[in-house]
Design a protein around this nucleic acid. Structure first.
Length: 269
DNA sequence: AGCCAGGACGGAA
DNA sequence: TTCCGTCATGGC
């Protein structure tokens, strides 16, 4: 049990933000998360956040995972006072963090994400883990499944993946898994690359284009200057930034602004 | 019934 | 280089 007072942190916003598809709601203000092969329960009341794990695990695993050493107040303060849209987005989404997720898992999840909706992505990821992930047990005795390794998925056939109902994305994932296992795309090397090189390397993977590569860079490799433009962001840009989004102003952390806007677009009426 | 969802791919122009 | 049809699945 580890408690911290965390400003600029809202576990509900983070869980619903569509960065990670392995949050599950428990009770009010309480969530379960599977990440890095671990199971964690998190609850929050105001700024008081409780991580159901030892302090050492919090420091070594969850502090970096939730990017708790970064000052999001500084990111928010950079928003132009006259930018009514981003001001509203920050007001609605100011508890978001850019997570540091596992690379292979993020690759697969965002291949699945293309031309898909978050509810169905979540279902696909859950079925994938239940069928091909390693069974585990948490400290408090709850059974869960790790995310399947590239080797496990590379060993699958199209028929094996049929029950997951991935649609046309199944063949992308099979091919990408084999590219990773064979070393054709070296994920360990990708981790060491800067944003531009990592993005180019990831785009060699089957089913990974510009948008998905940018999501992987943002949500796994923490290249927070990545600014993925999906259908929601496209509509937002056309409606609110017809002359172009002020990327210069947010150079180095534009991805944080992208997430504020994306979440705001999702939740706003 | 038609449209849309955190798009990518292969081929044509 | 840009443009276009196609690719599954499911909710509304």
């Amino acid at each position: 049990m580890t408690e911290r007072i965390l400003p600029d942190f809202d576990i509900g916003q983070i869980a619903r933000s569509g960065q990670c598809f392995r949050f599950r709601p428990l009770d009010e203000g309480r969530w379960a998360l599977i990440a890095g092969g671990r199971y964690l329960e998190i609850s929050q009341q105001g700024q008081r956040v409780t991580f159901d794990c030892p302090a050492e695990e919090f420091e070594t695993v969850w502090r970096p995972y939730f990017d708790l050493d970064a000052d999001y107040g500084r990111y928010k303060a950079a928003v132009a006072a006259r930018d009514r849209y981003l001001q509203r987005a920050v007001a609605a989404a100011g508890g978001l963090r850019i997570l540091r997720q596992e690379l292979w898992e993020t690759i697969v999840c965002f291949i699945i994400s293309q031309q898909n909706n978050i509810a169905r992505i979540t279902g696909c990821v859950e079925r994938l883990c239940e069928r091909f992930g390693a069974p585990c047990t948490s400290r408090n005795g709850k059974a869960y499944f790790a995310f399947p390794t590239a080797a496990r998925l590379a060993a699958c056939t199209a028929d094996d993946l049929a029950p997951i109902r991935l649609g046309y994305r199944a063949k992308y994932i099979l091919t990408a898994a084999r590219q990773v296992v064979s070393g054709e795309v070296d994920l360990e090397a990708v981790r060491q690359m800067d944003y531009a090189h990592a993005k180019a390397a990831l785009m060699r993977l089957s089913g990974v284009g510009v948008k998905v590569a940018e999501c992987i860079c943002l949500f796994a490799l923490h290249h927070i200057d990545a600014f993925p433009v999906d259908t929601h962001i496209r509509q937002m840009l056309d409606a609110h930034y017809p002359k172009g989004f002020p990327l210069r102003r947010y150079k180095g952390f534009a991805g944080v602004m992208q997430q504020y806007a994306f979440y705001y677009e999702l939740v706003k009426p």
